[in-house]
Design a protein around this nucleic acid. Structure first.
Lengths: 384, 384
DNA sequence: ATATCTATCGCAAACGTTTGTGCAAACACT
DNA sequence: AGTGTTTGCACAAACGTTTGCGATAGATAT
């Protein structure tokens, strides 16, 4: 038997339960025919102060000025229907009442949030954060905000982020896939939602959407050819996780070997995750194996730097004994000694181009399907 | 005279102008008493396809199922008032109709967007991006998104970003001020909006809001004392722009000098912006000046690395001739040779702590006013 | 003076949710 | 059969905007 007391007739009998609302028992007073939930003390105070706590709305201004809401809205938006006098009065009143438009309500009506979503594997690596910088820069120029989600190289996180963002939070999406993303159903599901999507850097030909990417195959080709020209014959290649579907760099490497008549040696190609131990382990394997290697081409500058330091600790001369190349042109490659030969992917440009392409789609409302290739540049330094 | 034709009575006479709507001339047919704006061909088609283009809403589901909107809402939210049968039916119908809730509408009524705003000077520097990483990590754990704005070390941009974010876009704000921010009225104006704000790293005591910061004074003290213990007497200090109000590092430096009985020498303290030329210029000044310096303490690792490379190019031995210290513990300090002695500010921890503190405020709705100090750690390497 | 304009504003419907309350029917128990 | 109880749903008011359409009072032209 509920011991509830009816707020109207103050009677504790003839009260019956009536469902549950927000985890609170709901009651029904048969006497005064009144439904209620059990309120803790001082509930009425809240409803009084509630109004005061809220930011001022158009309604508040309208009431204060004794005019309609629509007039206030139009006045603040400089609609020509409103006379200059009332317009100025309302504007002054608005600032004096500290009015700020509720962008949520605006977005709801206008069907546009003026913000772009970005899904990126990692935002602490300079490689990615410089892309982010490019995106953010271009977006800001057009008055767009940027909502950033980090997938942490985790496919499930990427999917979750995607779902969250696409629910009307953003006007467009920029996505750089996870290393382990090899199925793209999650993207396909979102493609008919009317929200434009642009892939950048790690792209998939399986998707019929615009892409911004670098010619990694060509980059790897150039690096490999450079090593060959330097006289290297046994060029070890350190790749990322095998799951990575987008592995153009291997192709470029093989292409260069083939063109220069060097036969492929499977033992010279290793896949590793990017952990320090895995990288060093792979290098040590190569050092101990029989056909003496004379070059290491790491597909990540970070790993290349680790390799250089490891080789130096082993008193192996770079590049006399072994040449080392990286990929990505991170700042550390310029600092390490010997300075690292690498391939500049122009990450910032990729970010900028991706944001531009997306904004064009959003603003022109045209479903473009461009694919833009950002040319990189080989940077030859001391390590080769 | 307008040549408009009334859509109703198809008469071109007796048409008069009636204000302007959305930059389009509006007309009024005196004949059929009908208002209209000039529509280009095929306007009616749009209103037909309009409905089809939209994502499915609760209303669509309700109509399809022949029940009320509220029932659909409650069913999808597992409200106990709805029978298991209808609940399942509706859920199935919802997924079959590809329903996704409009988060804007939800946010509007719930007064919560589940996203945090971050204003940060720069997101490409690892120093800051690692803070971002910490923030993003903690936020994601609690199911919050992160909206990131880059102020580019520009005070006006910071103000603009703040304004944009605070208009109901976010549930809370994390801000790390610009180097040039010495007035905080823009923050004060937002403080009574009910949206909690947390400062991190670059904080101001002028504001009565929670802060997360590192004990830079102590860090600078430790670095300076370390140099003194190494026998350095003439320790040059390279600081950031003078406008920077938060310059505790100078205090730590001076404190250490005083404690060890070394008198302050104004010529040994220089303020520079962080451009390469300014840094190198300052260093060259010191090298050419009379009292031979025996140490350089740069308040930025990035500059310290540049200094090391510059000194090496001048064949100046580090640390035999001149010791070099940085501040911040960026990765490059570990790569450069000699490896850089620096102070680890624990940037990631700062980001995490800031996000935690903010989320506590948002979730508990309590206006805390904690100030948390994240202890750093001196990292002694080869450059001293 | 009359007819015609025009400038200026209000009304109300949308946008897609959540949620307090009302209410009929089903159920349970004398 | 009569009473008390519960279940399951619908109505409608919010949330804060934008905007198509009406409407009126004064201005202008005839």
């Amino acid at each position: 038997m509920p011991r509830a007391k009816c707020p109207k007739c103050q009677i504790t009998e003839r009260i019956l339960k009536s469902g549950i609302i927000r985890d609170k028992q709901r009651f029904y007073c048969k006497d005064c025919n009144y439904h209620f939930t059990l309120l803790h003390e001082g509930k009425k105070q809240k409803s009084e102060t509630k109004k005061n706590n809220r930011p001022t709305s158009l309604k508040d201004i309208a009431e204060a000025a004794g005019i309609s809401i629509s007039t206030v809205s139009r006045a603040l938006n400089n609609h020509p229907d409103i006379s200059l006098e009332t317009r100025n009065n309302i504007k002054q009143l608005a600032t004096s009442m500290d009015y700020h438009p509720n962008m949520l309500a605006q977005s709801l009506v206008n069907r546009s949030t003026h913000s772009l979503g970005v899904i990126i594997p990692n935002l602490e690596t300079t490689f990615f954060s410089s892309m982010l910088g490019g995106i953010q820069h271009v977006a800001a120029q057009s008055g767009y905000r940027v909502v950033i989600c980090q997938s942490d190289e985790n496919h499930m996180t990427e999917v979750a982020n995607l779902q969250a963002l696409m629910n009307n939070m953003i006007d467009g999406l920029l996505i750089c896939h996870t290393l382990y993303t090899n199925t793209f159903d999650h993207i396909k599901m979102q493609m008919n939602r009317g929200i434009p999507i642009v892939q950048f850097y790690r792209v998939s030909e399986a998707l019929d959407i615009p892409k911004i990417f670098s010619d990694d195959e060509n980059g790897a080709f150039q690096i490999t050819e450079h090593l060959i020209n330097k006289g290297c014959k046994k060029i070890a290649l350190l790749l990322g996780p095998k799951a990575l579907s987008i592995n153009k760099r291997l192709n470029g490497y093989l292409k260069a070997l083939k063109m220069h008549g060097i036969k492929k040696d499977e033992t010279l190609i290793k896949h590793v995750d990017f952990s320090y131990n895995a990288v060093i382990g792979a290098v040590d394997d190569w050092l101990n194996s029989e056909p003496e290697i004379d070059a290491i081409f790491s597909i990540s500058d970070k790993c290349a730097v680790q390799i250089i330091r490891h080789l130096k600790s082993k008193k192996i001369n770079i590049p006399q004994k072994i040449s080392v190349c990286g990929f990505g042109n991170e700042y550390t490659g310029e600092i390490v000694e010997p300075q690292l030969t690498t391939y500049d992917v122009k990450t910032r440009q990729i970010g900028e181009a991706a944001a531009k392409l997306l904004l064009e789609q959003i603003i022109d409302k045209k479903t473009k399907n461009e694919s833009i290739l950002i040319d990189g540049e080989i940077i030859i330094r001391e390590s080769t």
